[in-house]
Nucleic acid binder design. Structure first.
Lengths: 218, 218
DNA sequence: TCATAAGAAATGTGATCACAAACCCGCGCC
DNA sequence: GGCGCGGGTTTGTGATCACATTTCTTATGA
């Protein structure tokens, strides 16, 4: 006898496929998965305690966003980006992020800058602890905290799909580099914000974005 | 008795969910669907002669790209964009398209410009015939033909998701305006291409993009 | 030792079903 | 006349299954 043990409490929960989607999306964006990592419907289903159907919807959604790659036979893996593709995605970041930062600049008050400061300290700690996932997470949170103030949800949405595509690559990059020194540009970003200097902010964001990814080029 | 009449010829065909996806995507992007149009799983399935499963995957994929909107109860419709959202999407186009055009400029040879000229004539015919779908289709093809030369697949992919989101809105716009005169900027784009003038091309693309969408603002 | 073919396991695809929630329409009450 | 409240219908969700294909494994042969 199979109990209908769905729908537990009193308030409706998000659908299973959405829960799976969110979990996987975070894993990909934060670099918890290496490039080329294979994902199977039954494996994902087992991991989240659901059947193949919600797992399939989550994977379909993520591949549509570029977070995952679909092979010719329908197999799903995390993307292994070519150098050209990495370069192009970095250029897209260099196009979108200064624009978002500039739009946020007018609305950025002191409390926001303080919050970014705190996130940046967590970022520095992650570097000291050699924790790539936490480094990526705090780095993205630093940027997103600023861009949320731009009030440009569509542009931020596009940018997040770019971050998604770069997730596994960033993991591979930062575990290889094993950097021990904090990225210098976050300080420049904060200074430009405090000074209200649009041109300086755009430049600092652009260099912060391109700097991190350019190490892979050879 | 149910025949296993799948897998027809000798070479494997694309999966059913992909066929459904492509069909719907084209309908949305070319403005064949009005904003707020509701789509149901069983309806789509019947329309394409498949079950709910492939229809569901196609809709999930399209909503992930922003081509369709998901209501809180899981219902799927074509998006009804607010004026703010339309404005923002136009600004994204104004950011991406000059960049793509500029990248294509170096690689644009005469045959490409001739091809764009032909497409532009088809576009003018569509205006004369008051055919909004054909107008949108040829207009996008005009731009895409240029941007393909940029060899920036990721950036073009992002742009196409923006076009997708604007599809139903563009239909509503151009059926309301009933414009009878060709957009003047396509000629400027072609002239800038022939002259190899980067600044002029960027400007022409930007104004062409913002011009078309700004009529909705009140 | 390595390539290769055959068998076994794993995987994506699509159909079908049960079910709960949402939606719609009309009746009746104030 | 307007408003809420039924009940029937529609709709999305998730599970399960059959099946073809791909992938992996292993044993065989040169």
């Amino acid at each position: 006898m199979i109990e209908t043990l769905n729908r537990q409490t009193t308030i409706s929960e998000p659908p299973a496929h959405d829960r799976v989607y969110r979990g996987l999306r975070q894993q990909v964006m934060h670099g918890e998965l290496a490039p080329g990592q294979a994902l199977t419907l039954r494996g994902i289903g087992k991991q989240y305690g659901v059947s193949m159907t919600p797992a399939r919807e989550a994977l379909r959604r993520l591949t549509a966003e570029g977070a995952l790659t679909l092979s010719a036979s329908g197999r799903v893996t995390t993307p292994e980006l070519s150098n050209d593709r990495i370069e192009e995605l970095a250029q897209i970041r260099a196009l979108l992020e200064p624009e978002l930062g500039s739009r946020a600049l007018r609305r950025a008050h002191l409390a926001l800058i303080d919050r970014m400061e705190v996130i940046n300290e967590a970022n520095a700690r992650a570097i000291h602890l050699q924790d790539p996932v936490e480094y990526i997470r705090t780095n993205l949170e630093f940027h997103r905290t600023l861009y949320l103030r731009a009030q440009s949800p569509a542009m931020l949405g596009l940018l997040e799909t770019v971050w998604l595509q770069l997730g596994p690559t960033m993991r591979a990059l930062y575990t290889k580099l094993r950097r021990t020194t904090a990225p210098p540009h976050h300080r420049l970003i904060l200074e430009a914000l405090r000074a209200g200097d649009d041109a300086a902010l755009r430049l600092a964001l652009r260099t912060d974005v391109t700097q991190g990814l350019r190490h892979l080029q050879g």
